[in-house]
Amino acid sequence: MTTVLRYAAFTTDPSGGNPAGVVLDANGLDADAMQAIAADVGYSETAFVTEGGNVRYFSPKAEVPFCGHATVATAVALAERLGPGELVFSTPAGIIPVTVDDQLRATLTSVEPYVEAVSEIDEALEILGWRSDELDPALPPRIAYAGARHLVLAASTRQRLADLDYDFDRLTAYMLERDLTTLQLVWRESPTTFHVRDPFPVGGVVEDPATGAAAAAFGAYLRELKLVEPPVTLTLHQGDDLGSPSLIEVELRTDDTRVRVSGNAVPITAPA
């Protein structure tokens, strides 16, 4: 019988953050079995660890190349059993080093990121029910990658970000056509503090309450567009509009173009 652990990531409160399933011994499970377990768990992601530090990530609907919150959850679960220290995960997106400190706070280092121009966003805005004049012109739309692809759209007000109601099927089709994992919807509170939301319909989830992969991609976006100056640590608030607050820290260094994402994770009780 496969043991599935459950952790809330990017929080110290089991009722907050983003829940992830973690299978620490997935040896012998094929992709179909992993997909079935992830669908049964029902969280936005479940991570499966096999020999050699290999990790695969499955949403209830499909495998994804990388998931930040499930990586944090997996690292903390391992540290609780083996002690804090350095880990190296081999993921479909590439090698992900993770450090877990004595307070069981995990910091992952992304794969090499990139940022792409976006040819048009009219369809995305229509699906979201947003107008172009509700965007922040200082944070232009881009596609950003740090293990998975995300479309970054910045709202000009917190109210615009809070009012999110989109066409699930249309956004799913839009994202699949463009190989997007989430939309990274953001509002800038200060130069280094942001509020973010992440629709995730391609994974069968309306919205993620904490998205480490998108946080890493967003850090790369800010650096590429010279909207922040490394070295810098960014604070991302996510999940507040869902009643599941999450806190994500993103570090950009001068000596490394990869992005570091930090957060806590705590066990949660499995449903009866």
Rank of each mutant, 00 (worst) to 15 (best):
T2V: 15
L5G: 03
A8V: 00
T11W: 06
G21L: 07
A26D: 02
A33V: 00
A33C: 02
M34P: 02
I37T: 09
A39W: 12
D40G: 12
G42R: 12
A47V: 03
A62P: 04
A62L: 15
A73E: 04
A93E: 09
G94D: 01
I96P: 02
T99Q: 14
D102Y: 04
T109V: 09
T109A: 08
V111L: 05
P113C: 10
V115N: 05
V115D: 14
E123F: 07
A124E: 12
L125S: 06
L128S: 08
R131E: 15
R131L: 12
E134P: 00
E134Q: 14
G147M: 02
R149A: 09
H150W: 00
H150F: 07
A154W: 12
S156G: 03
S156E: 11
R158T: 01
L161Q: 02
D165V: 03
L171C: 12
L185M: 06
V186Q: 06
W187N: 00
W187K: 03
R188N: 08
E189H: 15
S190R: 09
T192H: 14
R197G: 14
G203L: 04
V205R: 05
E207S: 10
A215I: 09
F218T: 02
L222S: 12
E224D: 15
K226P: 05
L227C: 12
L227N: 13
P231C: 01
L236F: 11
P245E: 11
I248M: 12
T257E: 15
T257D: 14
R258F: 10
V261Y: 07
S262L: 01
A265S: 08
V266D: 01
T269L: 13
T269W: 09
A272W: 13
